[in-house]
Amino acid sequence: MNGDEQLLRGRVYGHDHDDPDPGPKPGRTYAELVGGPLDGLLVDIHGWRTEEVNDGVALTTELGRWPGGRALYDPRPGDPRKSGPGVACRFHYTGDTP
């Protein structure tokens, strides 16, 4: 099993921990969250334009500095990206906002 296959065994943001199938779906594209309160989760970015991926995400979480606030994740310039299904890139934690 390669690294992407192991990573795809992770949970997708927005799926409940008790969801019978919280993992990634075949044929979809994901970003891995690195650091911060949502470390290790995947975000479904299937169908996003390059500009949308470049903007990163602000994800609601109860685990950040402000419960119910948002954890901010952005791609790093120069980080590798691939096209197609699976884990295409990484979003790195940059902070929290209320």
Rank of each mutant, 00 (worst) to 15 (best):
V87I: 10
G23T: 09
A58E: 14
L7W: 06
E52N: 11
L8Y: 05
W66Q: 15
A31C: 07
F91Y: 11
G14Q: 05
G47A: 00
N54H: 09
G40V: 05
D4C: 08
L63P: 11
H92E: 02
D96Q: 05
M1H: 13
P75G: 06
D79E: 09
L33P: 14
R28T: 12
H15P: 02
G95Q: 02
F91G: 03
A88T: 04
A71W: 01
P67K: 00
D18L: 05
H92W: 13
D74H: 08
V87H: 07
H15G: 08
G27F: 07
G78C: 06
R90Y: 09
L72K: 07
D44G: 01
P77H: 07
P20N: 05
Y73T: 03
D96T: 08
P37S: 03
Y73M: 01
L41A: 00
D44V: 07
P37V: 04
G10F: 00
P24E: 09
Y13L: 06
R49F: 11
L8W: 09
T60A: 11
G10E: 08
D44H: 02
G40L: 08
D19T: 01
D18P: 08
G47I: 02
R76H: 11
G78R: 05
G69D: 01
Y30Q: 00
L7S: 11
D44R: 01
G3L: 15
G64A: 03
L7R: 12
D16T: 13
P85A: 14
A88G: 02
V53Q: 02
D21A: 15
D18H: 13
G47V: 10
E32H: 11
D19E: 13
T50C: 10
P22R: 05
P85T: 12
R81W: 08
P20S: 10
P80A: 10
T61F: 12
P85Y: 12
R9Q: 15
D19P: 01
W48R: 00
L63K: 14
R9A: 14
P80Q: 08
P37G: 07
G27I: 03
V12C: 03
V12T: 02
D39F: 01
C89A: 09
G23W: 03
G3F: 15
T94N: 09
D39A: 03
G23I: 10
L72P: 05
